[in-house]
Design a protein around this nucleic acid. Sequence first.
DNA 1: GTCTATAGGGAGATAGAC
DNA 2: GTCTATCTCCCTATAGAC
Lengths: 233, 233
Amino acid sequence: MANHLTKSEMSRRRVLDAAAKIFRDYGYVGTTMRAVADEADLQAGSLYYYFKSKDDLTSAVLDLGMRSVAERVESALAALPGTATGRERIHVAVHAHLSASLEVGDYSVATRRIMGQVPEAIRAKNQQQREAYGAIWRSILEQARLRGEFRTSANLNFALLYIFGALNWVAEWFRPGGRSIEEIASEFASFILDGLTGNESALTAVPLELASPVQAGWLSNRGHKQKAKPRAG
Amino acid sequence: MANHLTKSEMSRRRVLDAAAKIFRDYGYVGTTMRAVADEADLQAGSLYYYFKSKDDLTSAVLDLGMRSVAERVESALAALPGTATGRERIHVAVHAHLSASLEVGDYSVATRRIMGQVPEAIRAKNQQQREAYGAIWRSILEQARLRGEFRTSANLNFALLYIFGALNWVAEWFRPGGRSIEEIASEFASFILDGLTGNESALTAVPLELASPVQAGWLSNRGHKQKAKPRAG
DNA sequence: GTCTATAGGGAGATAGAC
DNA sequence: GTCTATCTCCCTATAGAC
């Protein structure tokens, strides 16, 4: 049982994937066990074999989404040589965050949308993980400042909130088939480090194509087809 | 009836404010007409005097939140002299956006959370307003680029998505009593324009207080006390 | 592991009194 | 304008068969 999942583990994961999708489209309260079961090709009662309640399922979805991103970023940073600059670390962290976040896109979007709507007990538990992940970023920023790579007037507390706002919004508008994650990561790292005015000495070169419009609705949540209007009463 | 609202108009607004709060905390499906009525000191049936359905109410909440921000930004930009630089316009737009967005904070947060969960018809309608508002920002960015204030490698489509992600997240973590909206706006405009590395010649000077932690949970939605756990089944 | 059946309760919307 | 009463439908969770 080293690497392949048991049937039970696979089914459990199938339920989680289904739940992430339904939470994303219908919110916390709007998600029904029936809809999750349907998406996972099960009957509603069967979910209770894997999760003892709707809240237990909710907590597991939030946990998996958060951990996927945090672990990817941690290992990407750990793989860097000790000589890496602040710029390099930030670029790598941005890429790892976006890459993992988009890979588990249903979880990322669901989390962003329902975090403020789940019962307090669930939120508090997940909040600890979020703070721990934030601490990683805080330390990258502080290291870069200590190395003298930042202007001294930059407030790192705000920078953290600013960066997370921009990065976590990506899972809402990204659609496969457009610009690659690498391009987006380079562009965003460049925005974070140099802003819009900064000099041209960007990170890795980013092709100059100002004219090409971004794929789907530039600001939107469009594209999440809902099977039906959320059930009326 | 030039300036003061009729009783009916006031009640309607009371219902909208109540709905924004409930949508924010419970999501689209989780919001019940009973809960909105309770928050507005009415009975559930009475809401149907003002709004012909839950979806009609939903649409009105999204509309008001969006318009509040767009109108404030438009008029702030219109008030600028023709000689204003790209930097100045962006700073003013950031401040106006944040200021309006926080003033109708319940609407802003509710919109951000439920936009992806409302029925398609409602989303499509609101989407047009969002695109129109986005066009304003796009034109500021393009003007600044034409004036030569930006590095030519910056992709403005991504810049727009990046900026909106960061700005619209603020309503989630901002708590009155901490740093002022003006400080946040200056800091954010500086991030957008100069990034973290840019030279010290910021906009208006921002006091250097790297040590002071931002008030509540740095990444969180904490602080929206829920009266009770969303009703269990 | 997955199913069916069902308990006990809450939803949106309408009708008609005041 | 606002209320109460009510119709019809769907929810979470459990019990027990297979």
